[in-house]
Simulated assay, not measured.
Amino acid sequence: MSHAILTIFILFFLFQIGAFAKKKGEMKDTHNFALQWPLYLYIFTVMISLTLIFAGIYYIMSFSSPILIDSNQGSVMKDHNFAEMIYYSGATLLSIGYGDLNPIGPIRYISLFEGFLGIVMPTVIFISEITNKHKED
């Protein structure tokens, strides 16, 4: 059931991106958009890439020792799978921090760095875009 819901969510999300791109294209002659469509795609791509890179780091590090505590169960997770690492990485990168998974050991510091990147990267990209727009004008 969860796979079906996830599939529906992904299809809906892709449909919304397509609808946004189509509507933006129709309105380009009458509206001035400050931020261009490729910027959103670029930020999305960067954030997805960072999520997958850190998920890979966490997954590889989980081979040597447990790296997460399941706070719902109150126990150290001994078996990790890549899907859990993507979830943990995404929650950390987006600074959501549900609290259901907590890092232990050196992963705590890597998680802090990932959370920092999740805040700084979109900011840097937006500031860079604004600076480029200002130079063009």
Rank of each mutant, 00 (worst) to 15 (best):
D79M: 14
N81A: 09
I67N: 01
I53C: 08
G74W: 08
S71E: 14
S62R: 05
N81I: 12
E84N: 04
E84P: 00
S49C: 08
I48Y: 10
Q73G: 01
I60D: 02
T51M: 13
M47P: 00
E84V: 08
M47H: 03
V76W: 07
F54Q: 01
I69P: 04
M77H: 00
T51I: 08
N81R: 01
I67H: 03
N72M: 13
F82V: 01
F44D: 10
G74E: 01
H80Y: 13
I67E: 04
S75Y: 05
S49D: 02
G56R: 06
L41V: 12
P66S: 14
S62I: 08
K78I: 12
H80T: 14
I57Y: 03
F82G: 00
L50D: 03
G74A: 06
F54K: 02
S75H: 10
T51K: 10
I48W: 11
P66A: 10
L50M: 09
L68P: 00
Y58T: 03
M47Q: 01
E84Y: 07
S71V: 13
H80A: 15
M77K: 08
F44M: 12
T45S: 08
Y42T: 05
L68R: 00
L50A: 02
S71C: 08
D70H: 05
Y58E: 15
S65Y: 11
D79W: 09
G56D: 03
M61I: 13
D70Q: 07
I57W: 02
F44A: 10
Y58R: 00
Y42L: 07
D79K: 14
D79Q: 15
S71I: 09
Y42G: 03
I48T: 11
E84W: 09
Q73L: 10
K78A: 13
Q73P: 04
S65R: 15
A83M: 15
F82A: 02
H80N: 11
T51N: 11
L52A: 06
F63G: 04
F44T: 15
M47F: 10
M61P: 00
S49A: 13
A83I: 15
Y40M: 12
S64L: 10
T45D: 05
I48D: 01
M47T: 02
F44I: 13
L50C: 06
S49I: 11
Y40T: 02
N81W: 08
I57D: 01
A83D: 06
G74K: 07
S64F: 12
I43M: 07
L41R: 00
F82N: 00
Q73C: 06
I67R: 01
S62P: 00
K78P: 07
F54A: 06
S71A: 13
A55H: 00
Y40C: 09
I48G: 05
V76Q: 05
L68E: 00
D70V: 09
Q73Y: 09
I48N: 06
F44L: 14
P66L: 01
V46L: 07
P66E: 09
F44R: 01
S65P: 11
F82E: 02
M61H: 10
M77L: 10
M47C: 03
S71R: 08
Y59N: 02
K78F: 13
T45I: 06
M61Y: 07
H80R: 06
I48R: 02
N72C: 11
S71D: 14
G74N: 02
S49K: 06
K78G: 15
S49W: 08
I69H: 05
S49M: 10
I48F: 13
K78Q: 15
P66V: 03
S75W: 02
I69G: 04
F44S: 11
S65V: 09
I43D: 00
I67G: 02
